[in-house]
Amino acid sequence: MTPSVLEVVLLVFVLTSALGAALLKDTLAAVMAFAAYSLGISIIWVLLQAPDVGLTEAAVGAGVMTILLLIALANTVRPSEDQLFERVRPRTVLAVGAFVLVMGATVPALPAVGATDSPVGSGEVTDYYLDNAYEETEVHNAVTAVLAAYRGFDTLGEAVVVFVAGVATLTVLRTEAFA
């Protein structure tokens, strides 16, 4: 399968902004590169037909994370940098490069995008959800059916994790209200 022009452009954009987020010396510039990275990834999720994930990435990664990081920056002192990029040690390049190689070596083993005979596309569990989700849960979005009904206990755990994060913040700051 050859990637379309849009996919190539998006991949280049995401890789460039990821490198920018890692290498830019100025923290504000790095935060901006990180936001651009999140936005690019969220469009890739939509292209891969995962709009639920794309929506989360756009709202949390590109939106709220950027605002929270910017507020954190506004509360700290930002030293003015004279160089644009972080200095990179050869040892780090070697370690990260080796990691990328190992990860990249697993990519050919993955099924092609949209392949119908992949384990996810033809698995018994997937078929069960797609066949029975509407009758059993009365919701059309199979993702929601799995999230809130079949795997509802997991989702309760996730929601409580968010709650605990808030409580932990208050505990660390020794206050009882978000103010």
Binding site: V64, N75, T155
Partner: peptide, 27 residues
């Protein structure tokens, strides 16, 4: 089933909105 799931989604939304706004204020 449908309304139960929607109420659960609303509950999750309440948790997330509250924590996001709270972290924003705290920061």
């Amino acid at each position: 089933s449908k309304y139960g799931i929607e109420l659960v989604e609303l509950a999750i939304g309440g948790i997330v909105a509250g924590v996001v706004v709270g972290l924003f204020f705290v920061l």
